[in-house]
Computed example of a mutant assay.
Amino acid sequence: METENPRREAVVGTAGCVTAFAGALAGIVLWAPYGKDGLLDGFEGAANWDVVWYGLPLMVLGGITTALTVFTAVRGRWLRALGLAGAVAGLAAIGYAVDALAGPPRPECYDPC
């Protein structure tokens, strides 16, 4: 199958890859405070590894999917953008279900008086 404009397809493909990479970086940046709280400030010195095993992949995939949703919507591919938006909603539902971004439990402080 011959393409009509291979240079344009290459530019669009490269822009899509750069968009996905930027989304992955955004997901990591948004995950970092939760990761720090889960690994460094664990209750009684215990780390919460669920933050890494569940939270990091969900945030990276969510960032990539969100960026590609915006990219496809800007290009006018509404049906694909709607499908990707559904995938973002699914990832968010999974994240809430497994409580992936919950930091370590905070000890409750009461007034001693």
Rank of each mutant, 00 (worst) to 15 (best):
A26F: 05
G27H: 03
I28V: 15
I28E: 08
I28W: 08
I28A: 10
L30A: 06
A32I: 12
P33A: 09
Y34E: 07
G35A: 01
K36M: 03
D37M: 13
D37F: 10
G38L: 04
G38K: 10
L39A: 05
L39F: 06
L39W: 04
L39G: 02
L40W: 04
L40E: 09
L40F: 12
G42T: 02
G42R: 01
F43Q: 00
G45C: 00
A46C: 02
A46S: 10
A47Y: 00
A47K: 00
N48P: 05
N48K: 12
W49C: 02
W49K: 13
D50I: 09
V51E: 05
V52P: 07
V52R: 08
W53P: 05
W53A: 12
Y54L: 15
P57K: 15
P57F: 11
P57W: 13
L58F: 13
L58C: 12
L58R: 13
M59P: 01
V60M: 07
G62Y: 02
G62T: 12
G63P: 04
G63R: 11
T66I: 03
A67H: 03
L68R: 06
L68I: 07
L68M: 14
T69G: 09
T69C: 10
T69I: 08
V70A: 12
V70Q: 03
V70T: 13
F71Q: 12
F71R: 11
T72P: 03
T72E: 08
A73I: 14
A73E: 13
V74Y: 03
V74C: 06
V74L: 08
R75C: 09
G76E: 10
G76I: 12
R77P: 06
W78G: 12
L79E: 15
L79R: 15
L79Y: 13
L79H: 15
L79P: 00
L79K: 15
